[in-house]
Design a binder for these strands. Structure first.
Lengths: 226, 226
DNA sequence: CATAATGAGATACATGATATATCAAATTTA
DNA sequence: TAAATTTGATATATCATGTATCTCATTATG
């Protein structure tokens, strides 16, 4: 999600799709939020067709759910679905990171540290949308260096499914930092050019980052989210 | 791809999407084949809107490629893209198989042997569409037992990207069986309830199955496919 | 209290209009 | 004369608009 979307010279469907994806990642939308084609078309100043097409793409991505003749809303992940997504991410993300290592230079590591600082600052200030975007940027700026575009596509789809849930849970369950932040292990591993340590650092970040979310999800699962 | 598509009581887009997906897996379409919205709408007896929507889904899946104002055609994978997809599959498919093991019983193994026999018979008779579908069925009937629906979704998307290429290459490059077929190792591992052996068998099947494709792809890559 | 009819709201689809990319032929130019 | 460029015709996707249909909630009814 590189900056706010100012796309041009693409089809309208594609532009709307990109906008929505950004909103899903940037804490603008929460699980269960309903999206109405007609309203969106009006507020965007377009017709319903491209809106509908963009929404259908996101349904396919698993970010939205649709009851055919009736409504479209931001998908609500069950606890079980969240766990499954995490399991898949554990298979893919450490691998992407390890592959990225060969394309990492010192300048990149410096940039990454900047992103991490932005994340920490935003968390302290309780600016969760910024924190979420910084976390996204931290992970994907590494993954992108893997030069595996199709793997990155898959990972983007996984993240856009989880995004709204994080938006909802972040204030309650963001990592607590008893120990050092896992991102620092990532940076250290990059410095040492140690692929195994790098993969492990991402694995740990995923597990630790998810732990508090999981705990919270378990506690509210019976009653479901609003 | 369970049998020919006779879908009902779904949205038109979804029906058309399912049909196209089937055709992509069943050797009806080859890389580079062009798909025209208007023609398809006419031959299906529907309007253009649902056709376009179905095609857009498949573009999103990576099965089709589209030059925005101009054409839509079956995607042509480059050698590099094929290799990347195989790398991703190697991360996911053995895992899915291992997870499936706990839900496998003897009746299932017997069914799987039937599917494998269908595959072998079809290959001998050079009935490649049937062989491809049987191979699909062999793999996914195992994966489905993993009870990881989202992982299976991802795998389906990977296969639908590769499908047309296999349709094109199968006559040239289908596995040669110097040794025993890897599917037999799969069945043996299932019988022994050996998760590691099962994962390895799928890994080997993927690598061996891809080897001859790769060789062929490399030989024609410079000039590209028709 | 359970069930059936009714109505509002939203999506799904069909139809029609517009814009744009490509290709080929004609024209210009070296 | 040959090459390159322009120009126009054609085909196609894209988007807008209008209509039909479906789902659910509410209310009426047995």
């Amino acid at each position: 999600m590189q900056g706010p979307p100012h796309i041009q010279s693409k089809s309208l469907s594609a532009q709307i799709y990109a906008q929505l994806k950004y909103q899903l990642m940037a804490a603008r939308l929460q699980p269960g939020d309903r999206l109405k084609i007609r309203d969106m078309a009006q507020s965007l100043g377009t017709s319903e067709t491209p809106v509908r097409e963009a929404l259908l793409q996101l349904v396919r991505d698993g970010a939205l759910e649709m009851k055919p003749g009736y409504y479209i809303r931001v998908r609500r992940l069950t606890l079980q679905e969240y766990v499954e997504l995490r399991e898949i991410r554990l298979l893919l993300e450490p691998h992407a990171a390890a592959k990225a290592l060969q394309n990492v230079d010192d300048a990149f590591i410096a940039e990454l540290e900047q992103v991490h600082e932005t994340l920490i600052r935003a968390e302290l200030e309780k600016d969760y949308p910024t924190a979420l975007l910084a976390n996204y940027e931290f992970h994907f700026s590494v993954y992108r260096r893997s030069e595996m575009p199709q793997l990155i596509e898959i990972l983007e789809r996984l993240w856009v499914q989880i995004g709204p849930l994080l938006n909802f849970l972040y204030p309650f369950g963001h990592p607590s930092y008893d120990g050092p932040h896992q991102h620092l292990n990532v940076i250290a591993a990059l410095r040492n050019r140690d692929a195994d340590a790098l993969a492990d650092a991402f694995r740990d970040d995923l597990i630790e980052g998810g732990r508090s979310f999981l705990k919270y999800l378990e506690s509210i699962e019976p009653e479901k989210q609003p």
